[in-house]
Amino acid sequence: MNVLGISRSPRFSPNSVDRDMAIFTAVASRMQRGGNDVSIISEDLFIAVDLSEFDLVFSMARGRDVLTALAEAEQQLNLRVVNSAHGLLQANRAQLVTTLKDTAVPQPKLQILNIESSEEHSLQELSEELILTYPLWLKRGDACAQRPGDVCFVSNQSELHQALISYAANGVHAVIAEEHVPGDLVKFYGVEGSDFFFITYPTETNNFSKFGLEQHNGKPLHTPFDANMLKSAADRAAKSIGCIVYGGDAIISADGKFVVIDFNDWPSFSACRKEAAKAIANRLKNLD
């Protein structure tokens, strides 16, 4: 099978370039050892690639130009792309809120704030429209976090206003406001359509953190919860998007219930890279 692997651009890997490349390389290696003819390219160099030469593409790309080209190949050439480029184009953070709701994935209380103007009075009015309870989290709604400030923790209206000024200055027009939920923070990693599902407690294990924001949830209490239910919820969301290779974050409350606070396409799997690479390669060889 002729396979193309597309690695992620450094601009979409804040503080994670080596980690993202490590899982990409591990999957490519396993695909090669499985007897496939594997070509690899960075999304930054993805120019005039003849996709008709390939039977399968596994891609960590996040740039809209590359995703658009891959989505066209999915439609016109019936090319299998993992993760689905068409799905990712339809799943920015703001749209993901709706997807999680439609697939019955528990989420915190949230509100989407649309920045229509960068003028001071407009941003002040927007901050006054908030109906959620502080403290809360703000996340850019158009894309994954790429720089400090794309995700931030705010405790009052003044901090919210300053954050909105920063978002507006960086050209972000939609911001997701999400109530902070106390409890155990867990990171989960999965491969939809397989048994692979890995959970870790980042504030306990001192795992790598892109921006150091996990500290707001403190040390975990290891409240018992149903990990199978979390996997089932995450798999539903992944299948809906076409995001076979995924990761995310959830909060386990004192009553054992969970809410999903983040969901990402193809994370670095740094806490479980070897097991994840095996699961991903096996899934690529056994697509539906």
Rank of each mutant, 00 (worst) to 15 (best):
V259G: 14
E178D: 11
L221W: 02
P267S: 13
G256S: 11
D37W: 01
L89S: 13
L4P: 12
Q157H: 03
A71H: 09
Q215P: 01
R62Y: 04
K219G: 13
D37M: 10
V154I: 08
K285Y: 02
E129Q: 14
N36Y: 05
A61V: 09
L136D: 03
E125T: 03
V49C: 09
Q111Y: 00
Y201H: 14
V181A: 11
Y134K: 06
K109C: 06
I280R: 06
K231V: 11
M1P: 13
V260M: 13
F58E: 02
H121R: 04
N264I: 00
P10W: 02
R8F: 07
G193K: 06
D37A: 15
L113D: 08
A104C: 11
S29R: 12
S39H: 15
T205M: 08
V17P: 10
L123Q: 03
V57Y: 01
E120N: 09
N36H: 15
D255V: 11
S16Y: 00
R8T: 02
A250T: 04
P202T: 01
D55I: 00
E214S: 15
H86F: 08
A22D: 13
A61T: 05
K101H: 13
E43N: 13
D142T: 00
L284G: 15
L96E: 12
L4Y: 02
F198P: 08
L79Y: 07
N92G: 14
H161P: 00
V154A: 12
V49E: 09
L284D: 12
D255Y: 04
M1F: 08
S158K: 08
R33V: 02
V27L: 09
F225H: 10
D249M: 04
L132H: 09
K101W: 01
V105H: 04
G212R: 05
E214G: 12
D265S: 15
A254F: 01
P106K: 05
V172I: 13
L51R: 08
S16H: 06
G218E: 10
L70I: 01
I176F: 04
S209K: 01
R8G: 06
D44Y: 05
K109P: 11
L56D: 12
N78E: 12
S9C: 07
N114W: 00
I261T: 15
L126I: 03
F24M: 06
L77T: 03
A168E: 01
G149S: 10
E192V: 06
N92S: 13
H161K: 04
G171Y: 00
N83H: 13
P106W: 04
H121W: 02
E125H: 05
N207H: 14
Y167S: 09
A73S: 14
I40R: 11
V57K: 08
